[in-house]
Computed example of a mutant assay.
Amino acid sequence: MIQPKALRRGDAVGVIAPASSPDQRKLTRGIQFLQSLGLKVYLGRTVTEKQGYLAGSDQVRLGDLHEMFLNPYIRAVFCARGGYGTARIAEGIDYDLIKCHPKIFWGYSDITYLHMAIQKFTGLVTFHGPMIVSDFNSAARFSFLQLFQPLGLAYNDRISPLQVIAEGKRAGSLTGGNLTVLTDTIGTPFEIETIGKILVIEDVNEPVYRIDAMLQQLKSSGKFNGIQGVVIGDFTMDKDQEAYSKELDYFFRCFFQSAPFPVLSGFKFGHGRRNYGLAFGVNACIDTAGKLLTAEPGIQL
């Protein structure tokens, strides 16, 4: 994998909206957060564009992405928000351009599609973490520190209560993201690759039967063959969260309890209030005996 260069105070970073349009008030707060880290922020056209549920036309959003990677002064590309739309531009991306100009690429939710595509066709480590219109808190600030110095991940039971669903200890590179989007990649050139990997999954406002259907789709597609482990992040629902969580926990245990690979749940990755950043493509290890997920740094000095 290709590790992008670390950020330094004073570096220029770009903000784009490759999917849906961001809320401008939240965008302003996010820009202020980046500036508080000592970064100079440059905005792409898409952060103020709107075309229905998209942040401008496919051509505009694709152009924004290319321009940020091509610009020699931009050291990182942050996505303003998710929503929908990245699948529409994946086939038009110049992956050789990205490979020749590797830099930090950060986002989650619908951005999962771009994580899969960029990793598959460039080998660049990408980052799954809170976006610019997200509410920034201690978890978000801590997550961004990994972009300034090569900090490895060590996520254990002290950060959040973790539950062992299937026991074991395995190593593999991290991949995954939003479960709905991962399922959408099946049958496309950007289909998720899981052999030898540790799969991270999360989602929002999906009923349990839909999560069941999507995991069954991954299973029937052979995506759990040769996998090294599953890490279950946040699955949130706007209402009745407590009842939803109980039903979902029961489902995960039924689905994964006889898995021949380790499965841990309870991680704060995804659409929850805390969203710790992850480097996708780096070597990692899942160990259920210690309730621990470790991973190598995603950047190089």
Rank of each mutant, 00 (worst) to 15 (best):
L114V: 10
F148R: 07
A87K: 05
G92N: 13
G129N: 02
G92I: 00
A117S: 15
A154G: 05
Y108I: 12
N156W: 01
R61S: 09
H128P: 03
Y73Q: 15
R88I: 11
S134D: 15
K103F: 04
A87I: 10
K103N: 10
L151R: 13
R81I: 15
V60E: 09
P150A: 07
D96F: 08
F144Y: 15
D110W: 02
Y73D: 15
A117D: 14
Q163Y: 07
I159N: 01
I104G: 07
L124I: 05
D157Y: 02
R88A: 15
L62R: 00
A55V: 09
L65K: 00
R81W: 14
P102K: 02
D110H: 00
P102Q: 04
A90K: 06
L65M: 08
K120G: 08
I159Q: 03
F105V: 08
Y84S: 12
C100Y: 13
E49M: 12
L70N: 09
D94H: 11
A154Q: 04
V133Q: 04
G63K: 05
M116T: 13
L147R: 03
H128S: 14
Q119M: 15
G52C: 11
F121R: 09
Y53C: 07
F78C: 01
Y84L: 12
H66Q: 01
L70W: 09
H115S: 09
D110Q: 01
S160C: 04
V60Q: 05
L114P: 08
M116G: 07
A154C: 14
C79H: 09
F148T: 09
G83A: 05
P150Q: 02
F127E: 00
T48A: 13
A90M: 05
E91N: 15
D96L: 14
Y113E: 11
F121A: 00
D58W: 10
Q119E: 10
Y73F: 07
Y108G: 07
E91H: 14
A117F: 14
H115Y: 04
R88Q: 15
L153S: 07
L62K: 00
T126N: 02
S57V: 07
D94F: 05
I89W: 07
L114F: 11
D94K: 07
I118T: 08
K50N: 00
T86R: 03
A117M: 13
V125A: 04
L70D: 13
A154M: 06
A80W: 05
I111K: 00
Y84H: 12
L124Y: 01
Y113V: 13
H128N: 15
D64F: 04
N137S: 05
I93W: 08
D64I: 05
A166C: 11
I159P: 01
M68K: 04
C79T: 13
D157A: 10
K99Y: 06
I104N: 05
